[in-house]
Design a protein around this nucleic acid. Structure first.
Lengths: 154, 154
DNA sequence: CCTTTAAAGATATGATATATCATTATTTAA
DNA sequence: TTAAATAATGATATATCATATCTTTAAAGG
């Protein structure tokens, strides 16, 4: 991610937070920056290490978890439950409403692509869920894939 | 799960394994039995504890992981990646081909329902995955829900 | 400014998972 | 039938992910 894009994302994140009184502190912002700059999802402990390397300041893993909780609550980041890692939301700078996210995770190079789930799929999914006697609460789909590059290499 | 159903499932599991030379040892069978008897998904360590309680024999967590790997490979069990727990496959006694599983997980009572994904959904999913430049490798969807009972209670 | 509340630090510990080497059991084939 | 090969399991250590709890620091609001 280039510098201009990064700055824009951080600025938008700040605006979004300020708009409803959430505090994007320096440290939270730094964690978000590390996520934005990473090509792959990162664990809380990996973020603690990068924080130290990048900002010459140590941060307890505990605190990273709390900051991640904050970012996830603000929809500035997502947790990949199947990988126990975190990614920046791909739509921080978009204006459109945040959709149900679908994550494509390359099991070889760990790249992640966040796309919106089509309404058709969500609808069909909800019907089958309802039929089975359940109610969707946190719809988020994580699919383990190979990206085209890795698929060719393999 | 009643006794007759359990026995049938274990018998079918044995037949399926024997059919292609996989060895469903006593211990692996016991782990499968514990999964079949459980109302909720279990972690490897929970299985080790139940194994001890049920069969009066201790088993290292290591070994449980290996047996789970075996059961998952044989499609006799599934790993819920978002919960880090394991469930028996709901289709051991069915004759039909094993489909792409979709798991509905109640976040309150932990009940899990395994259903097959409709072809329409799989197709739509594969198209969107392909468009995004990925290839599905291990399609399995885990949705976090409330079961109707818990939804009413809440 | 002082009080209240939010954020972050520190320490301990629990829970999930993998690596590796040793031992036992089963199969295969001379 | 027994020796060699392979598969399964045991044992130990350690990595990795996560939460509980108490303390300290910083910010917001009267």
């Amino acid at each position: 991610m280039d510098h201009a894009k990064l700055q824009l994302a951080l600025q938008r994140a700040e605006e979004n937070c300020r708009a409803h009184g959430a505090r994007l502190t320096e440290k939270r912002k730094h964690i978000l920056q590390l996520l934005l700059q990473s090509d792959t999802p990162l664990s809380a402990y990996e973020l603690a290490t990068r924080y130290h390397d990048t900002f010459s300041d140590t941060i307890p893993a505990m605190s990273v978890y709390r900051m991640l909780d904050f970012l996830v609550t603000e929809t500035l980041a997502h947790k990949l439950n199947s990988a126990n890692k975190y990614v920046a939301c791909a739509h921080i700078t978009c204006n459109h409403q945040h959709e149900v996210p679908q994550f494509l995770i390359c099991d070889r190079c760990q790249s992640v692509k966040e796309i919106g789930i089509s309404h058709a799929i969500i609808g069909a999914l909800e019907i089958s869920v309802k039929k089975a006697g359940y109610v969707l609460t946190q719809p988020q789909i994580e699919l383990h894939c190979l990206c085209d590059r890795c698929a060719q290499a393999a």
